[in-house]
Amino acid sequence: MAEPAAQTAFAEEALTHLDTLYRGALRLTHDPDQAQDLVQEAYLRALRYQHSYQTGTNMKAWLFAIMRNLFWDRFKGSRKEDVSLDDVGDFVLYDKLKDEGAKPEADVLDKIAASEVVTAVDKLPPLHREVVLLVDVEGFSYKDAAETLGVPIGTVMSRLHRARQQLQKSLYEYAVESGIVHPGGPTQVSQT
């Protein structure tokens, strides 16, 4: 056991990454209570395994790895859900918007509510979702994401690529359903 002062300093530093862990847990569990349980358990475990953390290395990545490993142990019976995403094409949303004459394509993204984007992220299979969380939301490098997830960098890249395709597909479907774009005809992105 570390000296109390050292332990407090360690805990304080670890707590500076709380938002990242909580956000990640929330997106993985889809439930605020479960997210809090998961994060609390992760912090307790981090304190217990404090000696295995190497000072000067990426503490955020280390903590996130503890949290997501707990998630997979607890909620998925340790068996990683083996859902693969189909190759749905590289620029699904972009290409469709272009076909439909919705110009500029990027404006459509701004019409989609943040909550719908979160829903689209939540619909990704968990192994793909966590890559998006690390790289897009938390700004991890591929290398840090690979270490956090315990997979090769190539796997991070392929999961990320498929996840982004799938996101575009979901967002396009939402944009059609909600009338932001109208399939089959030149679309005028309505000005609001």
Binding site: D19, Y22, R23, L26, A114, V121
Partner: peptide, 14 residues
């Protein structure tokens, strides 16, 4: 798209 994903998920804090 990357920016939109970040900002949409960012607002959740502990």
């Amino acid at each position: 798209l990357k920016r939109v994903v970040k900002h949409s998920c960012d607002c959740d804090t502990a």
